[in-house]
Structures are given as structure tokens and as C-alpha cells.
Amino acid sequence: MNTRPLRLISLLFLVAGLTACGESEPPWRGHDITGVMPELAYNLVDENSELVSAGAYADNIRLLFFGFTHCPDICPVTLGRLKAAIATLEPAQRERIRVLFVSVDPERDPPAVLRRYTDNFGERFIGMTGSQAQLRELTKRYRVTYGYGEKDKNGFYPVSHSSAVFVFDPQGNARLLFNQSLTVTDIAADLERLIDAGATVETRAKGRKAVAQAATGAGTANYP
């Protein structure tokens, strides 16, 4: 009689443990922003002087980063880290990733300058910029901002900008935020996991499509 409550408690723990094992996933290395930030949307000019919107590079995991090519530290370090993380992935996985480098300094970063700059980091990197109105709209959408400092004797001026990388899944949903504390390994691990999750969704969708087609096929077979 006395052991009954004990047994009940251990059973409860067992159930709790099982459900925990079954449901919980390891946390992301980056900051999870699923549902917090809106889906990817922008109207900009890319490094080939073409108008682009969020429809471009759809089906890719997109890494959005705001900066400027005269940036002395944060931009080259962040883009370098992304480059190193992407380099650790399989070639097929690399094809699934696009880094959108949005310059918030359009005055000094026309498309040609942007192209030269992003070429340093690899073909997965695309430079973009826009008018002040377009840039303000996009930065406000992700609750970030930028600002310009005073010009010095050489005409150089500093630019304040977001140091974070916003990660969007192939459907354009905001998923993760990489800040400066993440290592190359952390970034690569999260990217790989996102690619795998995307692949699973795709296979499932393809599977469903195949089943649906088979079903309709069977249906049409009955009614030739």
C-alpha cells in the first residue's frame, strides 16, 4: 500500500521523461526568432543593377546582413565568418544558401562597388542596396536601424548598422538571428540543420504530391 504513491510518481516521471525525449529538440545556436519577425520582403537594387524583391532566390536559405563596404571591422569579420561556415558544408548544401549583403550606405556603394566587394566572399554572396526610403522600410521591418557620422577631412564617415545576420528559411519565414558571439562551427551547425529540415519538408511534400498524383491517376483510370 505504501509503495503505491511512489510507483505513481515514478510512472509520472517516466512519462514526463518520455514525452520530453520525444518532443524537445536541442536549442539552436543562434537566437530563435520564428514568429517574432515578419517574413522576408524587400524591394532593392542588386549588384547587377537589377531590381530585386524577396521572390529572388526563393527556395534558398537566405542570410540577410546590413552593412557598408567601407566598414572597417564588423562587416568583413561577419561576412568572413559566414564564408568559412558555408565552406564547411557539402557542395549541394552550399547551393541552398544565399547571403544578401544589404548596403545601408548607397552613396558610396553603387552596384559595381558592391559586386567587387561581395566577390571577395564567394558566389553565394549577393550585394544589394536601395534608396533611403527602401532601406528605411526594410530595416524598420526587422527592428534595426542605421545612421551616419560626421565626415572627416578625407570625406570618410562612419556608419552605424546592425551587427546581426537574419536567417530566413526557403519559404521566407524568419527563423534565426546570428549575433557576433557565434562561432563558425555554430553557424555551420544551424545552417546544416535548417537545410536538413527544408529537405525533409520537401521530400514529404514530394511524397504527398506523388501519393496525390497516384490517387488522381487511379481516379482517372476509373473514368477514362
Binding site: 527592428r143 534595426v144 542605421y146 545612421g147 551616419y148 557620422g149 562612419p158 552605424s160 546592425s162 558571439s181
Partner: peptide
């Protein structure tokens, strides 16, 4: 660090 993440209004 959120102010670095979001960017500051001016440098």
C-alpha cells in the same frame, strides 16, 4: 548587446 544587434541611431 541588443543595441549592436539592432544598430544604433548614429555612430
Amino acid at each position: 548587446d541588443v543595441y549592436a544587434v539592432c544598430g544604433r541611431a548614429w555612430p
